[in-house]
Amino acid sequence: MLRHWRAYLVLLCLIPLDTLAQVRTPLVIEAALDRQVIAPLLDAFERARPDIALEYHDRSTLEVDRRARNVRPAPDVVISSAMPWQLARVNEGLAQPLDSDEARDWPAWAKWRNEVFGFTFEPIVMAYRLDLSRRMMPPATHADLNALLTSKLDILRGKVTTYSPSRSGVGYTLFQQDARYSPRFWDLVAAMGAAEVSLEATTQAMLDGLTSGKYWVGYNLLGSYAMRWAQTHPELIVQVPQDYALVMMRMAFVHRDAPHPAAAKTFVSFLLGVEGQRILAGRTPLFSVLPEVIGPYTAQRLRDQVGERLYPIPIDASLLAFVDPLRRAAFMARWNREISILDPQEATAQRPSKAIPR
């Protein structure tokens, strides 16, 4: 047997490296997820499956969605934080079902028809500079922020930031959820407008502004990015709201026209498996979903901290209403009226449109 293995190794050494590379199965992933954040999981997958050549593209939600719909050959796996648009694509038949033990055992509240899966559990947070805490009591709840913007308007004018709902699919979804859970949401929008809030397209843009001192307080940031950023920027404090905290899930599906479906299904199953979830819980701030996984970033640990006031955005048919052009136009009209600040790119959002924001 040893002689056979030696002969095999000798033959293997004689094969050109480019020929060996061709033996590996390609896997193309289009994702709206910072590669630096998910790198520990990608590295672990590549170690576990050296026969798969992983090609990961980190893009905006707009570009990920466009490529999923229009680019051929299609990507193998599609990952995005724009939950309504992910579900809409799956509902249009753009995904294929995943029949694996991991998919079958995945919590029913975090999947749709075994075709798309929410594999992270990311809280939506506020963030503020220490400068703010030296001058006033920092906000711990949505009501606190509203009161702060009203009572300290002269100090906070021009120093507040949040998402632009016209340029961010995630931001638009979060504001829709805020309106659902908070009867004072529109009061908060008006208060942000009075404070001349700056509207950004990404959490990273908000974090950059907070770090530079341009902003003192940010509202509705993705907790995964904010927590990771704060680890190396001690001037920033991340606050999970104590009255209620929204939770966003990154959603992944295997494309219906995936050129390499077996590799794609292997990867998504890895995301949902105990090993993949353990990496999310221990080495990333993306927060794992599986209840049996232990680590600093788990859904259960977040529930223990926030309790019943934790509101995950559900993966169900209600998400589809968010992509309805008429509903979007009505929401944006109210938003612009209450905030009294018109982002130049938001003007088009007041008209019914099928365009998908970032």
Results as ranks from 00 to 15, higher is better:
L2T: 13
R3K: 15
R6M: 03
L9M: 08
L11D: 12
L14E: 09
P16E: 09
T19Y: 13
L20I: 07
A21I: 01
P26G: 13
P26D: 03
L27C: 06
E30A: 11
A31V: 02
A39N: 15
P40I: 00
A48F: 02
P50Q: 05
T61Q: 12
R67E: 07
V71C: 04
R72D: 11
A74R: 09
V77A: 10
S81K: 03
A88D: 11
G93K: 05
L94N: 15
L98P: 12
L98G: 10
A103M: 01
P107S: 08
A108Y: 09
W109D: 08
W112E: 04
R113L: 00
F119T: 02
P123Q: 11
M126N: 04
A127P: 06
D131V: 07
M136Y: 14
A147R: 10
R157D: 08
R157C: 07
V160L: 04
T161F: 03
S168E: 03
V170A: 08
Y172I: 01
F175Q: 11
F175I: 00
F175T: 04
Q176D: 06
A179C: 05
D187W: 11
V197F: 07
S198Y: 04
E200N: 10
E200S: 06
V217W: 03
Y219V: 01
Y219K: 08
N220W: 00
G223I: 03
Y225C: 12
W229G: 03
Q231N: 10
Q239R: 15
P241F: 11
Y244L: 09
L246I: 11
V247P: 14
R250S: 15
R250V: 00
A252S: 14
H255F: 15
D257M: 00
H260L: 03
A264V: 02
L272R: 05
G273V: 04
G273D: 09
G276W: 01
F287P: 09
S288F: 06
I294K: 15
G295M: 07
Y297E: 04
R303S: 15
P314M: 00
L319Y: 02
P325G: 07
I341A: 05
I341F: 11
E346L: 12
R351W: 12
I356D: 10
R358Y: 09
R358L: 04
